[in-house]
């Protein structure tokens, strides 16, 4: 639904986006993650035609329409919830959404129904007559999302949608996003990686204007499994036994690193190693005090892919 090929964007001498290429399949919820200033908002701004990409950009297609050739048509296929949501406080919710509907080309006789539809979609129909400056932050975000849904655009760009919300509002908003899955293609930018992990089918990691990683859930979950750690504590084996344990662990194919301190081993390995450790302990009569796995998080994957070593390797 979104296909970007060699997208570049410069502000003077500074290159905000450097040959960015990625695609978002139809109906998928894709997490677009990166540090501050990595290029997330710049990418969104190109997709909404607020900014024009550099001339060397090969192609930016939204819903099958080439944004470089027909920006207005491409723009009409995108709904956006910006990070900085500025609503005209002096207007009522219905006045604002009707105005936005007209701007988005919703025909006159459908406007009221469309406003009711989007307010129902974001679970805020009771807010229809409220002034925008009297709404809580959670409802303001919902109205922003309702605005993005006006005209039923196939693509939704959500820039930090849960920023400033309390935990309950975050849960509710996450449910709303979940409800849009399948009907819309979502590109969701967020710093809250736990949220991305829960909601998204795909992730796209951007750092210093370059795409570092683009993967679907299955692949990144496999990565997380591999990056997980096992903590093993044995009942005071003697020094010889300790080195025997360390040696055996290092010989296992799933193991990446082994660290030993006293009678505790910290092992970076796939979780499946636990069963074999159990069997080995029975055979060797090791007394296991504790054996627990600590799964890796998207955060660790993110740090790995945007860390200085990776940048150095890529450059």
């Amino acid at each position: 639904m979104i296909e970007i090929e060699n997208l570049s964007l410069s502000f003077g001498d500074r290159r905000a986006l450097d040959d960015v290429s990625f695609h978002v399949p139809k109906g998928a919820v894709t997490g677009f993650i990166g540090e501050n200033g990595a290029g997330k908002t710049s990418t969104f701004r190109v997709l909404t035609t607020w900014l024009l990409p550099d001339p060397e950009t090969v192609s930016v297609r939204v819903g099958g329409i080439d944004l470089l050739k027909d920006p207005h048509a491409a723009c009409s296929r995108v709904g956006v919830l910006p990070e900085q949501l500025a609503l005209p406080g002096e207007l009522r919710v219905d006045e604002y959404l009707k105005f936005r509907s007209r701007l988005k080309g919703v025909s006159g006789n459908r406007i009221h129904d469309e406003v009711v539809r989007v307010l129902n979609a974001v679970n805020a129909p009771e807010m229809i007559r409220r002034r925008l400056d009297t709404l809580s932050q959670g409802y303001r975000q919902r109205i922003g999302l309702a605005d993005a849904l006006l005209g039923d655009p196939p693509v939704l760009l959500l820039d930090e949608p849960t920023r400033g919300l309390d935990p309950r509002q975050i849960t509710q908003f996450r449910e709303l996003i979940d409800g849009l899955r399948g009907n819309h293609t979502l590109l969701l930018s967020s710093h809250v990686l736990g949220e991305v992990e829960q909601v998204c089918d795909r992730i796209c990691v951007i750092s210093e204007g370059q795409i570092r990683l683009e993967e679907d859930r299955e692949t990144w979950m496999q990565r997380l499994d591999q990056l997980g750690r096992l903590h093993l504590e044995l009942d005071c084996p003697d020094t010889g036994a300790k080195s025997q344990v360390t040696q055996w662990l290092k010989e296992q194919p799933e193991v990446s690193t082994v660290e030993n301190e006293g009678s505790v081993w910290s092992i970076q390995a796939d979780r499946t190693l636990r069963t074999r450790i159990g069997k080995k302990a029975l055979d060797e009569k090791w007394i296991i005090q504790e054996l627990r796995s600590e799964p890796a998080t998207l955060e660790s994957l993110f740090l790995q892919w945007t860390g200085p070593e990776k940048k150095k390797a890529q450059s």
Binding site: R45, T48, T49, W50, H72, C75, S76, V78, V80, P82, Q84, L85, A86, R100, L103, K104, G105, D147
Partner: peptide, 8 residues
């Protein structure tokens, strides 16, 4: 920016 997204 929000205004311009509508294609105006």
């Amino acid at each position: 920016e929000v205004l311009m997204v509508t294609g105006i």
